[in-house]
Design a binder for these strands. Structure first.
Lengths: 344, 344
DNA sequence: CAAATTTGATTAACTGTTTAATCAAACGGG
DNA sequence: CCCGTTTGATTAAACAGTTAATCAAATTTG
C-alpha cells in the first residue's frame, strides 16, 4: 500500500518473529535457523498480505550471487545488419539460462575500462564472450577476470582462470564447402570478400582456410591473389564482362552471398547454370534468396546452448562437460550450386 | 593481487583516510564531505595501485539506482523465428541507453509472479514492455509497478503510475496499404492469417482495421468472412484451384507474405502478374523475397530509440518529451503488387 | 578582535538480507 | 533424575558502499 517497498523487517515485526525466521521460511536460507510449521505458515501469510518482495540487491550483496550473466559483444547497435547469428545465439542462451533462473545482461561495449568494471563490479555471475578481437588489453581483462568466462567463436586467450572456449572449426567448414564444389567439377573458384569486412577475424581466417584447403587438394594456386576479389556493390558488371575464368564463387559470408546473387540476377547471369555460388553460415537467410543459397553451416544455436550450460555449471561449481566445446561445421546444399556448364 | 575484491575500506586505510573521503573522491558522492586536492590525488593513486573496483551492488543498495533497464518480451527463445523486428528494437535501445551508461537486462518470461518480482526486486530502474498481451494479471502488474514503464506496441493499460506508450498506428498502416491496392484497381482483396497466429493481438487488430477501412472506402464487404482465409502451409494449391475471385492478398505479417510468395512460385502462379501480394511490417526480409514484397512499414528503430529516451528521461526525473510517442506507418512499394490483369 | 563562514575531515548510522553464534526449553535414554 | 540431543527461536555481525551529523581549524567579515 505505502510508497516504499516492504522489507523483511516489517514482515518480521508484523508476524511477531525475527528477521532470521522470515528469511529462513521465505528463502530457505540459514542452516542453523529453525522454524516450526505453524509459524512458517503464519509468516508466509503475513508476507503475502504485505505483498513482500525480497530486495535482490541486498540478497546479492550478502551472497555474492546475482543470477545474472553478461553478454559481451561487438555488434550491439548493429544487430539488424545480420540478425540471424545473434538471434540464434540469444535463443540458445535464453533457452538454457532462463529455466535455470538466470537473467541475461547485455553489456555496453564502450571501452576496455568499462568492460573491466563490468566484469568485476559484482553484478555478474559469469560472462559469455562473443566475437571480441583479442588485443593486449583484452587479454589482461580475461586474465584478471574474477568470474567464469565462456567464449563463443572468440579468439580470446585460454588462461588459468575459469575460461572455456566453444568453437566451430571454420577450416573444417571451408573444406566441406570446397569439396562440394570440387566434386561438382569446379576447379576455378573465386573467394569473394566485401571491402568493408576485409579485416574481420572471420573473413581473414576463412580466406586462409580457403587457400590451405585448395592447396591440399592439389589445386593450382599459383597466383593465389587472383582467387580473391574484394568488391564493392557496384562492381559486378565490370567483373562479369571481363570474362572471368571462375566457374564458382565462394562468398565469405551468407549476406555477401545474398547480395551477390541479387547482382547476378540483375545482370541476367543464371545461377547455378552459368555460375555456382555458395556462402559461409547457413542461416535462414539462405532460404530466402533466389535461388536458395548453398552454404556451410555453423551450429550456432547448439553452440550457444552449450555455452550457457557450461557457464552455469562453472558458476554453480559443477564439473563442466568439456565435450561440449567443439562443434563440427555442416553443409547445406541448396539451389545455387551445380556442375559447371561444359565449355562451348 | 589477493583473491577477494578490494573494498573501499582497504583503500581508505591504505591511504590513511576515511571511507567517506574515498567515496567522495572516487565517485563524487556525499555533498557534505570535503577533500583537499592533494588528498584526492593521493586517494586516486592508492585506488589505482590496489586496482580498486567499486561494488555496484552495495552502491545500488544504498542509492536505489542500478543503471539497468529491463526488457520484457514474449519471444525470448524464439528470436530466430523473426529476427528483424527484435534486431531493430535492440539496436534502437542499445543506441540510446548505452551512451547514457545504462545496461539492458533481458528478463526471462516465465510467469506473472516472476515478472512481478523482476519489476519490484530493486534491480531495475525502468522497463521496456514489448508485445505482452494484456490479461488481468498483466494490468495488475502494470498498476503496481514501482518503476517507470515504456510500452512499445503493447496493449498494456495506461495507468496513473509512470507509464508511456510508444505506438505505431496499425490502422493507419492498413489504410495506406489498402489504398495502394485500391488505387491499382483491386477490389477483391483477401486478408490472410496463419493458423498459428490467429489470436495474436497484432493479427486481430490488423484484421479489424482491414475490414473497417474497406467499408469506409465503400467496398462491398457483404460476407466479410469470405475476405479472410486462415491457412496452413499446405493449402495453397487447394485455394488456387478453387478459382478465387480475389486479385490481391494482404498478408497479416511479412513472414506470412514470404511463405505465401514461395508457395505461389512453387505452383507456377506469377506474382504480381496473376496476383498481387503485400504484407505488414516492411523489414529487410521483404527485400530478400522474390519478387520483393510490398509492405507497410513501422519505424521500429525510431520507436525503440524514442522508447529508450523517454524511459531514461522518466528515470532521471526530466520531463519526457511526449511528442515522441506516436509514429506514422509508411508504405514500401516493391515488386509484388501491380494492376490486376484484365479479365479474359 | 570577536563573530561568522568556509574548508577539511571523521563518525556512525543507514540500505535489506543472510547466517554464525548463542540460548532456552523440551525430550529421550540409561 | 541427570546428561546429551533435538527443536525452536533470537541476536548481532557481516556484505560494501553512501551520507547526515558533527567537529576542529582556518579564513573571512564587520
Amino acid at each position: 500500500m505505502s510508497g516504499t517497498a516492504v522489507t523483511i523487517r516489517e514482515v518480521a515485526s508484523e508476524a511477531g518473529v525475527s528477521t532470521a525466521a522470515v528469511s529462513k521460511v521465505l528463502h530457505g536460507r540459514g542452516a542453523s535457523v529453525r522454524v516450526s510449521e505453524e509459524r512458517a505458515l503464519h509468516i508466509r501469510e503475513v508476507a503475502k498480505q504485505l505483498a513482500y518482495v525480497p530486495n535482490a540487491l541486498a540478497r546479492s550483496l550478502r551472497s555474492s550471487r546475482t543470477q545474472t550473466i553478461g553478454l559481451l559483444f561487438e555488434h550491439f547497435g548493429r544487430f539488424a545488419d545480420g540478425p540471424e547469428y545473434y538471434a540464434e545465439l540469444l535463443d540458445g542462451l535464453a533457452a538454457t539460462i532462463f529455466p535455470r533462473h538466470y537473467r541475461l545482461a547485455l553489456l555496453p561495449e564502450v571501452n576496455h575500462n568499462d568492460i573491466g568494471g563490468s566484469l568485476a563490479d559484482g553484478r555478474l555471475d559469469g560472462v559469455i564472450w562473443g566475437k571480441l578481437t583479442p588485443d593486449d588489453e583484452t587479454k589482461m581483462l580475461v586474465q584478471n577476470c574474477p568470474i567464469p568466462i565462456v567464449a563463443i567463436n572468440a579468439a580470446v586467450p585460454q588462461v588459468q582462470t575459469q575460461t572455456i572456449h566453444v568453437n566451430c572449426d571454420n577450416a573444417h567448414g571451408m573444406s566441406l564447402g570446397l569439396d562440394h564444389l570440387l566434386s561438382l567439377g569446379h576447379t576455378r573458384i573465386l573467394f569473394l570478400r566485401e571491402e568493408g569486412e576485409l579485416n574481420t577475424p572471420d573473413c581473414i581466417y576463412r580466406l586462409a582456410a580457403f587457400r590451405n584447403h585448395l592447396q591440399s587438394r592439389g589445386i593450382d594456386v599459383v597466383d593465389s591473389d587472383s582467387l580473391t576479389w574484394d568488391w564493392n556493390l557496384g562492381q559486378f558488371a565490370e567483373w562479369w564482362q571481363s570474362k572471368p575464368v571462375h566457374t564458382a564463387v565462394f562468398c565469405w559470408s551468407e549476406r555477401a552471398g545474398g547480395v551477390f546473387l541479387r547482382r547476378a540476377s540483375e545482370h541476367g547471369v543464371l545461377v547455378p547454370d552459368q555460375l555456382s555460388v555458395m556462402g559461409f553460415d547457413s542461416t535462414r537467410y539462405c532460404d530466402f534468396t533466389r535461388p536458395r543459397l548453398t552454404a556451410v553451416s555453423q551450429p550456432i544455436r547448439q553452440m550457444s546452448e552449450s555455452a550457457g550450460t557450461l557457464l552455469l555449471d562453472m558458476i554453480e561449481g559443477h564439473r563442466p562437460d568439456q565435450s561440449l566445446t567443439t562443434f563440427p561445421c555442416g553443409l547445406d546444399v541448396r539451389d545455387s550450386t551445380a556442375r559447371p556448364r561444359p565449355h562451348s
